[in-house]
């Protein structure tokens, strides 16, 4: 109904229409799609690393096996950290929806703490393995293990840097549409890393300790 009215107003209506066209195709939507495409290409990087691990994961070169090395309770705690950080990020998104800056920042901070806890535990695990002589140069299994899990850890590291940057931006500029878009992109990134971790703990750790 209203659209026909706009059409009938002639040239002025067309100008208004054009104006709306430009406004409504604001980068928000396309940048979310673009970010999704980035995540999908990132997914392919992980697919290559998973495939490498799938091929080499049992080539121990007389070195230690996954069953001897992996500390499953530690991995379970690590998984819990990442899962908790996912839900707290979700709470931050909900707080942003209700336009509550303080609550958003609080939940983002808690998410960051869980992220740092995850990374610390992973660093501890890596250092422990290297200390035991099971570093990446020990066997093909360990090379592919460190490449895959390390790449995931690197993603989490950059995710935390992004998170802290975003917290400063939120504090400085408030809940602007731009910051909302950034929150959406980081939300996709953060949950995506949790999805990759499902593959890691299942395929690398749980299946790695099977005889």
């Amino acid at each position: 109904m209203s659209e026909t009215i706009v059409h009938n107003t002639g040239a002025a209506g067309a100008a208004v229409r054009k104006q709306y066209f430009v406004h409504e195709h604001h980068p928000e939507n396309s940048s979310l799609l673009g970010f999704w495409l980035y995540l999908m290409s990132d997914c392919l990087i992980f697919a290559c690393l998973f495939a490498t691990y799938a091929v080499l994961g049992r080539s121990y070169a007389d070195g230690p096996t996954g069953a001897a090395l992996f500390d499953l309770p530690l991995v379970a705690v690590n998984t819990a950290m990442l899962l908790l950080s996912s839900i707290t990020y979700g709470f931050a998104m909900l707080a942003m929806q209700r336009k509550k800056l303080g609550t958003t920042l609080l939940w983002l901070g808690i998410t960051g703490v869980f992220g740092v806890a995850f990374l610390s535990l992973e660093m501890y695990e890596f250092l422990h393995l290297i200390h035991e002589g099971a570093g990446p140069q020990r066997s093909a299994f360990l090379s592919s293990f460190f490449a895959l899990v390390g790449t995931h850890g690197l993603h989490v590291f950059f995710g935390i840097i992004w998170l802290v940057t975003l917290m400063f931006q939120l504090k400085k500029h408030g809940l602007t549409p731009e910051n909302g878009r950034r929150m959406m992109c980081l939300s996709l990134f953060w949950h995506f890393l949790d999805v990759i971790w499902i593959g890691v703990f299942t395929f690398v750790y749980l299946m790695g300790v099977l005889p």
Partner: peptide
Amino acid sequence: HHHDAHDHGSLKSY
């Protein structure tokens, strides 16, 4: 309107 192409979810869904 800059969000409505993407659903944020709710407390329940999270």
